[in-house]
């Protein structure tokens, strides 16, 4: 069991997401950075989809009441492990390097190296919360899944799932990916309804991430995009990665918690291989969109799959 001693405002239990229920209005949820989650789970010998903690803002202080192995992925937090009653002996925890934790130890994540970027805490056995509609992810808007459908609070207890793998002794780590701040994208269903000038602005200008961004979407600031004329759209299914442009002309990149149906014109869709970057784009940083073809999008997807196959193979050899 893990006890939450102190907690910033937005740490949630997430897995790779809740799929197949959008027709009921149920959002995808899930970790914004699924690459980090899979890397961490594979490193510890978990199922790739085991539940983890997504940490958006520090601090987070946890006490482990059982021994386990942990790894932090995503942005490097200023993180240390201490033993109870012996706070002088601090062990630094670096992202990508699994560490052994004994019962009674405290993990303290102070603040991220990049404010607003997300970290993931992966525990051998995974965080054990009930599956709801096929996922352990927290649906914050509807308040279900994860731990009681809400962010963690001081005083919460998290169960750890059963872990059957034998302990591994070879020290190894894996590097978290660094975001490029370039999101490759395909033209969206309403691309042609925008003016040629809007097309140029969309692909050429740096977009600044607004403070009003969250797990539902990243709101972007820049010079507004115009439609060729009024466009009346009937509500239709939308997906994470869709770039919607509401009437103020400022794009919103839909993220995991986005609603399932929308009525705004869609200028583009970010390719899935690049969506993990949304977890690491804090307010006021800039982002560019790069037009790619369908085959580039598919190749990027394959490359990512291949990376995990290779990682799994090399980890299997290391044990």
């Amino acid at each position: 069991m893990i006890e939450v001693i102190r907690c910033g405002p937005l740490s949630t239990v997430q897995d790779l997401g809740r799929f197949g229920h959008r027709h009921l209005g149920v959002a995808q949820s899930g970790a914004l950075d699924p690459i980090a989650v899979q890397q961490g789970n594979l490193l510890l010998g978990n199922e790739a989809n085991a539940a983890v903690l997504e940490i958006s803002v520090g601090p987070l202080q946890l006490q482990f009441h059982q021994s386990c192995r942990i790894v932090l992925m995503g942005v490097d937090f200023d993180s240390v492990l201490t033993s109870e009653g012996d706070s002088n002996r601090e062990q630094t925890v670096q992202a990508g390097h699994p560490v052994e934790v004994s019962a009674g130890m405290l993990l303290h994540l102070r603040k991220p190296a990049i404010a607003g970027a997300r970290a993931y805490l992966i525990v051998s056995g995974g965080i054990d919360v009930p599956l709801v509609l096929g996922s352990r992810s927290t649906d914050l808007a509807a308040g279900f899944g994860g731990l009681h459908g809400r962010p963690l609070q001081a005083g919460d207890s998290l169960s750890i799932g059963r872990f059957c793998k034998p302990p591994q002794h070879r020290p190894y780590g894996v590097r978290s990916l660094a975001p490029s701040h370039v999101l490759r994208a395909l033209p969206g269903p309403d691309y042609e309804a925008f003016t040629p000038q809007a097309h140029q602005q969309f692909w050429m200008q740096p977009w600044r991430i607004s403070h009003q961004s969250n797990r539902m979407g990243l709101r972007l600031n820049g010079s507004p995009l115009s439609l060729q004329g009024p466009l009346s759209l009937l509500s239709a299914g939308v997906l994470p990665g869709d770039v919607q442009v509401p009437s103020n002309g400022l794009p919103i990149v839909l993220a995991n918690d986005a609603q399932t149906i929308g009525g705004y014109p869609r200028i583009a869709t970010v390719i899935q291989a690049d969506l993990w970057q949304l977890a690491h784009m804090p307010p006021l940083t800039s982002v560019y969109f790069q037009a790619v073809t369908h085959s580039v999008a598919l190749a990027a997807r394959e490359k990512q799959k291949h990376y995990f196959t290779r990682l799994q193979d090399s980890l299997a050899r290391a044990t």
Binding site: F19, G20, R22, H23, L234, S235, G237, V238, T260, R301
Partner: peptide
């Protein structure tokens, strides 16, 4: 046919349908 076709999401909207495929 969701499983046979490997469909991830089948989302009817207002006069439209979104299909997300697992490819």
């Amino acid at each position: 046919r969701r499983e046979t076709l490997g469909l991830v999401e089948i989302v009817p909207g207002m006069g439209n349908l979104l299909l997300r495929s697992g490819l």
